[in-house]
Design a protein around this nucleic acid. Structure first.
Lengths: 225, 225
DNA sequence: CGGCATCCGTGACGATACTG
DNA sequence: CAGTATCGTCACGGATGCCG
């Protein structure tokens, strides 16, 4: 029998940048864990709740793998809360463009909504960020859906890829937002997949815009186009 | 017993654009098959040869899945050659930005080259395209490595994402290239991961530049910077 | 109660052999 | 050449148990 090295973590063993990336994040669930952590630090139980279908041991195993890969750090919260949270490292946050590209490509599939599908509000932050960034106006938007709320930060960079000032988070905005949006998950999905533009949504009232910041003015201006 | 639906192809069942994308291309080997087909139509045996490690049945299964997903079409070659080739559909080619993002993220890992790693020349086309596109000069470059040669097309679009005129292919350029490059795989990897810029490589002679087109002039100009 | 570890059944994966 | 067939192994998903 040949001395095969333990395939504990299976590698493609290819001197190729994409294959190397898939060695690190190609396992089932890994990129979805990144998606969850992109909204901010989360506890194990919260991760498990927002990743319906993942089994407890696989989630624990992935988190350990990601820690070894340097994508995630585990931090113990101050005494009052006897819990620990998982948090993306800088290297982990650099996966945002990967999830952006995947989300852009997969958005058309949102046309079909199965009744077995789970939904979380912050899953729309990724595609919505892309469309808001397309306006070319930096700022913070707070988005309210029936399923929950989240906020997105549009940075100064044109396409808003991996810049530190571009991203999103769960819940209300930590600082006063430049604009508040209220819309349904359906509308959110239609905007995400490009079936409805932001301008159309604002114009026909499916997207409710409040606020006085630059972003609010830019969105209100879409009503006139 | 609950009426569990057959998990023949496992879905995340999440109403999220990224999760939908991973439903389609998240299986092991799938994105690497796309990488192979991005260089042009290929036969089963060629795919198997350039994907060391994949077993025959898994490759066949993936190709069938991808055909069902509309990423790949199978085309029978004209009578002389009694073979058939697999080819990306438009939808499949739209995965280029996904592989670009993965390649960008994974490029730093090219610093470590294991002796178990397989190498193919066209695996460098992806990152090299990104750096050549960064020059902002459209054109066709033919690249020669010891391991083989390939060519890249830089289109008019600034970032050169999914535009139809941006891409790459195996072997020599189909039309007369605007520039010919000759370099080693090591240099190619260093440029890919940003450890060496195109300018540095051209300046110290590790990248040999020939040709008279706009791209050739732009690269030659780097020598002066 | 949060954070796993263990056990178990099923399916995916990898290697090899074989066939039209 | 282009797969299919077979088989052993391992990863995944679900449930349950343990331990601070």
């Amino acid at each position: 029998m040949p001395p095969r090295r333990t395939p504990s973590r299976r590698s493609y063993d290819q001197y190729c940048a994409a294959a190397r990336a898939l060695d690190a994040v190609g396992d089932r669930w890994t990129l979805l864990v990144v998606r969850e952590l992109l909204v901010g630090p989360r506890r194990y139980t919260d991760l498990h709740a927002d990743l319906p279908g993942v089994s407890t041991d696989v989630l624990a195993s992935r988190l350990k793998d990601m820690e070894r890969e340097g994508l995630v750090t585990r931090r113990r919260l101050p005494p009052p809360a006897a819990a620990s949270v998982y948090e993306l490292t800088g290297r982990g946050r650099e996966l945002l463009p990967v999830l952006q590209a995947l989300g852009t490509w997969g958005a058309p599939a949102l046309a079909e909504r199965r009744d077995t599908d789970a939904v979380r509000a912050h899953w729309f932050a990724l595609p919505l960020l892309r469309h808001l960034a397309g306006l070319g106006v930096p700022g913070v938007a707070e988005v309210r859906l029936d399923e929950g709320q989240f906020h997105v930060r549009v940075g100064e960079t044109p396409v808003g890829d991996a810049a530190g000032d571009t991203g999103y988070g769960d819940g209300p905005a930590p600082t006063d937002p430049d604009v508040r949006l209220a819309l349904s998950a359906e509308t959110c999905a239609e905007v995400s997949r490009g079936a409805v533009t932001l301008a159309e949504g604002v114009r026909d009232g499916r997207i409710e815009v409040t606020g006085e910041g630059r972003l609010a003015k830019a969105l209100a201006a879409l009503r006139e186009t």
